[in-house]
């Protein structure tokens, strides 16, 4: 029964993980999630510091408090991981996602699509007589809402980036461990 209660206790967490930008590190992170049965809702990664060769991985996951703590501890012990921040636990933070949405339609639906795009502050990147490509940025739910609306207005193809996230406020998240600048 206690276990049942804990099952219902699942929450969504956004983690920000600073890693060395080296071959295999992403595979190790993803392998950790699949190997231990954790859930990944979204994962994005890109280099953020060329000089020190660092990448930031943003992960959205779901789990009970015990599982979330496990995930953080497991991530933290990976050798090329420098730090793990639980943005959800730390409090206010910003999450953004970008989507490219292609909608193929004609007639009134086309005008409606443009009007909705305007409401969502999406920009039009490409247009033919029978299609648009919109770029929309925002929270996950905003993008999902936009995509759903477009679906009702024609054939839709979507590319989404997944969530990128950062904590609010003036605190700049630097490396805890000093990096050796002579490192090759």
């Amino acid at each position: 029964m206690a276990q049942q209660a804990m099952q219902d206790d699942k929450a969504r967490h956004t983690l920000s993980v600073l890693v060395d930008n080296e071959a295999g590190v992403l595979a190790r992170v993803i392998g950790l999630f699949s190997g231990r049965g954790y859930n990944i809702e979204s994962l994005t990664v890109a280099e953020v510091d060329r000089e020190n060769s660092l990448s930031r991985i943003s992960i959205v996951t779901r789990g009970t408090p015990m599982v979330i703590e496990q995930i953080k501890a497991q991530l933290d012990r990976i050798v090329p991981v420098h730090n793990v921040r639980d943005l959800t636990q730390q409090g206010v933070h910003i999450e953004r996602e970008l989507a490219l949405v292609k909608v193929a339609n004609t007639g009134d639906a086309r005008i409606e699509a443009l009007r909705i795009a305007d409401t969502f502050r999406a920009s039009t990147l490409d247009s033919t007589l029978a299609s648009f490509i919109f770029e929309v940025t925002g929270s996950r739910s905003k993008i999902t809402a936009f995509v759903e609306l477009m679906r009702s207005l024609g054939d839709v193809e979507i590319a989404r980036t997944g969530v990128s996230a950062i904590a609010r406020g003036g605190n700049v998240d630097m490396l805890v461990r000093p990096l050796d600048s002579t490192k090759n």
Partner: peptide, 30 residues
Amino acid sequence: VGITRACTKYNYLIKDAERLVPALYEAFHV
């Protein structure tokens, strides 16, 4: 490295000769 990723604490594929000696020392330390 792909096969042993799940069964090692850490692993290295040395593609650059300069990385060899640093990697060996770090591997031993890890």
